[in-house]
Nucleic acid binder design. Sequence first.
DNA 1: CGCAGACCTGCAACAGGTTCTAGGTCTGAC
DNA 2: GTCAGACCTAGAACCTGTTGCAGGTCTGCG
Lengths: 195, 195
Amino acid sequence: MSASTPRRTGTRAAETAARKARLIDAALGLAAEGGYDAVQMRDVAARADVALGTLYRHFSSKDQLLLAALLDQAATLRDNLERRPPAGATPAERVADVLRRASRALERDPRVTGALVTALFVNDAAAAPIKAGVREHLMAMLGTALDGADVDDLEGVVDVLGHTWISTMAFWSSGLGDGVSMSTRLERAAHLLLD
Amino acid sequence: MSASTPRRTGTRAAETAARKARLIDAALGLAAEGGYDAVQMRDVAARADVALGTLYRHFSSKDQLLLAALLDQAATLRDNLERRPPAGATPAERVADVLRRASRALERDPRVTGALVTALFVNDAAAAPIKAGVREHLMAMLGTALDGADVDDLEGVVDVLGHTWISTMAFWSSGLGDGVSMSTRLERAAHLLLD
DNA sequence: CGCAGACCTGCAACAGGTTCTAGGTCTGAC
DNA sequence: GTCAGACCTAGAACCTGTTGCAGGTCTGCG
């Protein structure tokens, strides 16, 4: 993909990529305004100045669209954590730091979080790969924070923490969080597993 | 509600209750055949020999219907556990027993489980009470099994186990279980938290 | 009796996710 | 130059959850 000079940037491929980004932006914008239900495919397409058919060319369903947005966010979060690693002397503290930073981002905008988490739990075989990708990001973040912990079953701890994290998000965004911040709840879990 | 003798059983009230039960049965039957998508409201109504409007009189949405079915199943499971308490000398073993018995029931019919779990994670404020009820059942089962455990934060352990359980079900029914049985995975979690 | 209210049926209609069709433009290969 | 294929638009059409309406039946109460 380099032999023939691809002319200049801003050609076809770049335009399509831009369109795709616009679509995700539009979806996030609508989600911010009214949550999952407000993300209507016709509106997403209109807001991104794209035909409905084109939206479906890029994302095979509403949930795939939201999952793509979620994957983006997870990847961004992971990048941030790599750029500025979690602080804390002990593994438990570093895990708490990761969870605190993540929760802050998520709680900032409950509607968006709710929409994305809803998509994460949708019943659709085609969504499995993206779900796996999201989980992979979360696990990697926890794994980094736990680096050097002296537990027998590191993988098991990451697994349990990951499940607790995800399920906590789901219940929290359903309004079943009992008002407790996600990070508080999750730090307790980390404490139980690591001390 | 007792002054005037209510005539004999089998009157109006009993009929409506029977109709409601038929509706849940129909939903479970369709779910067994094709999962969440196969549970179509018109079909549920037809299979239960009931008008569509009547279905909506009893269950305000498809997800409420499936959640009612889920609540039933959870209550049944809990009853069974009370009738025949979890076996095991240590709390960890009893928890493992609970999870094993529950998982056996769930894995017997993946399509049904998938449909019910999907409903559990749906984005709908009206569903919150039933979700809370389901969680309450799960927590109670774990609490019973953990009776007498000597951990500092019993409530915290139950919370983490509950989240792990629910999230494991969700991923498992999306086909992301990596082929490992749910109970295996969950027993490891219990081990980590209790030993 | 006669009426209100609860519950049921059958069916039309609406809403939003998804699919399909018909037709445009651009790009790279022969 | 021209043909195939990728990608886009506009819009109709379809499917299924959900709502609304116009009646029916039964029950309890005055």
